[in-house]
Nucleic acid binder design. Structure first.
Length: 273
DNA sequence: GTCCATGTTCTTTA
DNA sequence: CTAAAGAACATGGA
């Protein structure tokens, strides 16, 4: 599924095209992707202008001109694509919206597995969203604070959206490798030097991934329907048994918290360095 | 048929 | 109480 870089790529494309535009039609093909199941979601957004499209964690947040907000989460297989209405929408297209834009295109939310969906937030901007800070602006002292509170493996801690927002399985593995930190090390036992390295590595990896328009393993597409390019330069993710691109040692794959976890036992020693 | 998948959340187990 | 493991959700590709 899309993680922060993929979601940011979509937002970067959609925002200049759709911000300040008016929604002229909306179709919710299946109600069960909407949380909470408000009575008339299309009726609540048609006729309004989009004030902004932004990213928060892995969420794509739409703010209307009347301060109502909703967000789309892409789950594992979700896509949010602008397409020519002449072209029939693919299977599993659950939501479509049109805007007062001159070039004929409509916004389509398509999600076969339906782990994603649309969440209606209403106009209360004060409510807590339950997510931790954004990794791209995180300071080492903040990261140290967050990690000091838990003995879980560092990989599990970084995947926890309530601790840090936006990281997923790919970029946690890539960041830990870039920082030279073993995924099983308890989060609270990282020393300050490791935390600074990790903080730097996360930002470096995320920025690089955004520059390459994200990673496409299978389902991810950007808002124009194009795959990302970053998957071709993953250094550990999905490279089990292949030589580490840094030292040549075979990449190891373990299962941690039910997720595939890839690391180089040589570059990422399990004992504190 | 099997296993696996970019996520989240709930339940079970220890 | 905490935390880790496991299962569930649903679809499709290899």
């Amino acid at each position: 599924m899309p993680e922060l870089p993929e979601v940011q790529t979509i937002v970067n494309t959609l925002s200049p095209l759709l911000a300040k535009r008016r929604i002229i039609s909306a179709t919710l093909a299946r109600r069960d992707i909407l949380t909470p199941p408000i009575a008339d979601f299309p009726g609540s957004i048609v006729g309004r202008r989009l004030a902004s499209i932004t990213r928060r964690g892995k969420r794509i947040v739409f703010t209307l001109d009347n301060a109502n907000r909703f967000y789309i989460h892409l789950g594992m297989s979700g896509r949010l694509v602008l397409a020519d209405p002449i072209v029939p929408p693919p299977r599993h297209t659950h939501f479509v919206a049109r805007f007062d834009i001159t070039n004929a295109c409509e916004l389509r939310f398509t999600d076969p597995r339906r782990f994603g969906g649309i969440w209606w937030l209403g106009d209360d901007a004060t409510q807590e969203d339950g997510m931790g800070p954004e990794p791209l602006t995180l300071r080492p002292v903040q990261l140290e604070r967050l990690l000091s509170r838990t003995a879980r493996p560092i990989k599990s801690a970084l995947l926890d959206q309530s601790l840090i927002a936006g990281l997923g399985n790919i970029y946690v593995d890539e960041s830990l490798h870039a920082a030279g930190i073993h995924p099983l090390i308890p989060a609270h036992s990282l020393n300050m030097d490791q935390i600074r390295r990790l903080n730097r590595a996360i930002k470096l990896i995320l920025r690089r991934a955004i520059r390459h328009r994200g990673s496409t393993l299978r389902d991810y597409r950007d808002a124009a329907g194009q795959p990302g390019n970053y998957q071709s330069i993953h250094r550990v993710y999905a490279r089990a048994a292949l030589p580490c691109l840094t030292c040549g040692h075979p990449i190891e794959r373990i299962v941690l918290g039910g997720r595939s976890t890839h690391f180089c036992p040589n570059c990422q020693p399990s004992a504190a360095s």
